[in-house]
């Protein structure tokens, strides 16, 4: 077990597992943001494990996850828009999750690039890192936009539940796709 494998395992244990816990419990707003963080951290762990096992082919799942993870988060934002709009805007701590994702991407992709021979392999790592950072940005912007679109009069203590009443209208009105 070399340093890369140990780092990947530690990232899984102390990064992806808490993010998964946050995605499995709590309010919908936190779940959506945490699901995005979980996919980002798992992709970074896969990159570290690929380097640790010395198998560059194992980087491909990370690349696919970098594309599909934000797509899944956007899916949740789109289909749970009424629940997101029924609550208040995203608190500062959830918006800071994006910065945490950026920091994790930099901390993992930087050393990996330094350890790889210059050439197309480094470019591939940079592409995966850029996709991860960009996807995290897009997904969290969509989540905060959906959460702040309906944070007006029918706030958290409104008379209606999340699935019925006027709070569900804005999400329903835009469901034309």
């Amino acid at each position: 077990m070399n340093g890369w494998t140990a780092a990947g395992t530690a990232l899984l244990l102390f990064g992806a597992a808490p993010a998964g816990w946050a995605a499995a419990t709590g309010p919908v707003r936190r779940r959506v943001v945490a699901q995005n963080s979980a996919t980002t951290l798992v992709a970074l762990a896969v990159l570290l494990l690929a380097q640790g096992f010395g198998r560059p082919a194992y980087q491909d799942p990370a690349l696919v996850l970098a594309v599909l993870g934000p797509a899944g988060t956007l899916l949740y934002v789109r289909l749970l828009a009424d629940k997101l709009a029924a609550g208040p805007a995203l608190p500062r701590s959830l918006r800071a999750a994006t910065l945490l994702n950026y920091a994790a991407v930099l901390l993992v992709v930087g050393p990996l690039c330094a350890a790889t021979d210059p050439g197309r392999a480094v470019l591939k790592l940079l592409v995966i890192g850029a996709l991860l950072a960009l996807g995290s940005r897009v997904a969290n912007r969509a989540a905060s936009a959906a959460a702040s679109s309906g944070g007006g009069p029918g706030g958290p203590g409104g008379p209606f539940g999340p699935g019925e009443g006027p709070g569900a209208r804005p999400g329903e009105g835009t469901s034309d796709v």
Partner: peptide
């Protein structure tokens, strides 16, 4: 359950 299913998918892929 859908959130947990996506997490289960991630773990299974790993």
């Amino acid at each position: 359950q859908s959130f947990l299913l996506s997490l289960l998918g991630l773990a299974l892929a790993l």
